[in-house]
Simulated scan of single mutants.
Amino acid sequence: MLSVERNFEIPVLFQDEQLIVVDKPVGLAVHKNDFMPHDAPYLTKLVGDLTGRWIYNVHRLDAKTSGVIVLAFSPEVAKELTLQFERKEVAKKYVAVVQGNPGEGVFSDKVLVKKKTKFKKPAVTRFKALESVETAISYKDKTGIVLSLVEIIPETGRWHQIRQHFARNRFDIVGDTHHGDFTLNKIITEKTGSNRLLLHAASLEFTHPGTQMRQAFTSPLPEEFKKVLEGCSHLI
């Protein structure tokens, strides 16, 4: 466990001379961007400071998304891992709490490629509802809102792909302040105290560039997901 500034703790799932796999906490950006304060912490810097190594980013997780992420200690290893993502040789699995019960299926509608643009690209997201709870949450024309814990497998890696797909199909991810249901988010925060995006990178499997062995890493379901599902299911 790497304990870092501003109360971020970064569990290390695996580390060797070539790469490190960590469980990224919610609210921590992976790398520096122009929208952050100049002194804001970010994952690659913190892991680099604590390991004493240069860190090379391989793939992305939004700051608001927690979970498993792999980082490389050299540009060569980073390039090989990045190619695995591009060739769709990496198995990724997410979990989320969403509004409604989407059942099992595939979203394949195009999504925006970045913020403040109208350009879209094809995207594919597979999903399966694992469990659902009924609540007494009602507002506007909605009554007895259902919340579901959903397993998600993105086959492409577009900007906010999962969040866009679920919002466009009216299964908004709880806590999504960019694409989601703002009224529902506010109600759940008032009832449970949770104000995070309930989207978590639960597992990651790839081929180690050095050993050529497949390696899989998992992160447990965050307690806040359980807190929201259990808390809302008992609302009366």
Results as ranks from 00 to 15, higher is better:
residue 42 Y to V: 01
residue 72 A to F: 10
residue 36 M to V: 13
residue 67 G to D: 10
residue 23 D to Q: 09
residue 234 H to W: 05
residue 29 A to N: 05
residue 134 E to N: 01
residue 148 S to M: 13
residue 63 A to V: 03
residue 235 L to S: 07
residue 10 I to W: 09
residue 131 E to R: 01
residue 4 V to D: 08
residue 96 A to L: 12
residue 121 K to I: 14
residue 182 F to Q: 12
residue 28 L to M: 11
residue 201 A to G: 10
residue 192 T to N: 04
residue 158 R to Q: 10
residue 202 A to S: 06
residue 81 L to G: 11
residue 42 Y to A: 11
residue 94 Y to S: 12
residue 33 N to M: 02
residue 230 E to L: 04
residue 217 F to D: 13
residue 59 H to W: 04
residue 19 L to G: 10
residue 169 N to S: 07
residue 45 K to I: 00
residue 44 T to I: 15
residue 133 V to I: 04
residue 98 V to C: 11
residue 215 Q to R: 11
residue 153 I to M: 14
residue 35 F to M: 09
residue 11 P to N: 06
residue 40 A to F: 11
residue 79 K to H: 14
residue 231 G to F: 08
residue 151 E to V: 12
residue 40 A to C: 09
residue 163 R to M: 12
residue 118 K to H: 12
residue 172 D to E: 04
residue 186 K to H: 15
residue 146 V to R: 03
residue 215 Q to T: 02
residue 171 F to M: 02
residue 13 L to C: 13
residue 86 E to D: 10
residue 214 R to M: 03
residue 234 H to S: 08
residue 31 H to K: 10
residue 70 V to A: 09
residue 71 L to F: 05
residue 107 F to M: 02
residue 191 K to Q: 15
residue 152 I to D: 12
residue 195 N to T: 09
residue 192 T to R: 12
residue 2 L to A: 07
residue 152 I to N: 13
residue 234 H to Y: 01
residue 63 A to E: 08
residue 230 E to K: 04
residue 222 P to K: 02
residue 207 T to E: 05
residue 26 V to R: 11
residue 80 E to R: 09
residue 70 V to T: 08
residue 180 G to V: 03
residue 210 G to V: 01
residue 29 A to M: 06
residue 131 E to S: 01
residue 81 L to R: 05
residue 116 K to P: 05
residue 77 V to C: 12
residue 205 E to R: 00
residue 124 V to Y: 14
residue 212 Q to Y: 05
residue 77 V to W: 09
residue 158 R to I: 11
residue 212 Q to S: 09
residue 113 V to Q: 12
residue 132 S to F: 06
residue 222 P to T: 04
residue 19 L to Y: 07
residue 86 E to Q: 13
residue 19 L to C: 13
residue 75 P to F: 09
residue 12 V to Q: 05
residue 147 L to I: 06
residue 40 A to R: 05
residue 106 V to S: 01
residue 36 M to R: 05
residue 96 A to V: 02
residue 90 V to E: 14
residue 96 A to Y: 04
residue 175 G to M: 01
residue 173 I to D: 08
residue 159 W to I: 03
residue 52 G to E: 13
residue 9 E to K: 02
residue 160 H to Q: 04
residue 88 K to Y: 14
residue 201 A to S: 07
residue 102 P to S: 01
residue 208 H to L: 06
residue 214 R to Y: 05
residue 102 P to E: 04
residue 73 F to W: 04
residue 104 E to G: 05
residue 29 A to E: 09
residue 185 N to D: 15
residue 158 R to V: 07
residue 186 K to Y: 15
residue 172 D to Q: 00
residue 99 Q to P: 00
residue 87 R to F: 15
residue 232 C to Q: 03
residue 135 T to H: 01
residue 80 E to D: 10
residue 50 L to F: 15
residue 202 A to Q: 03
residue 91 A to G: 00
residue 4 V to Y: 06
residue 11 P to S: 03
residue 14 F to Q: 08
residue 180 G to H: 03
residue 127 F to Y: 12
residue 7 N to F: 15
residue 5 E to H: 03
residue 177 T to P: 01
residue 125 T to I: 05
residue 51 T to F: 14
residue 197 L to F: 13
residue 123 A to N: 14
residue 17 E to S: 10
residue 5 E to I: 05
residue 216 A to D: 10
residue 110 K to A: 08
residue 54 W to S: 12
residue 28 L to E: 09
residue 184 L to G: 14
residue 164 Q to F: 02
residue 222 P to M: 02
residue 206 F to S: 03
residue 221 L to Y: 08
residue 81 L to D: 07
residue 53 R to E: 15
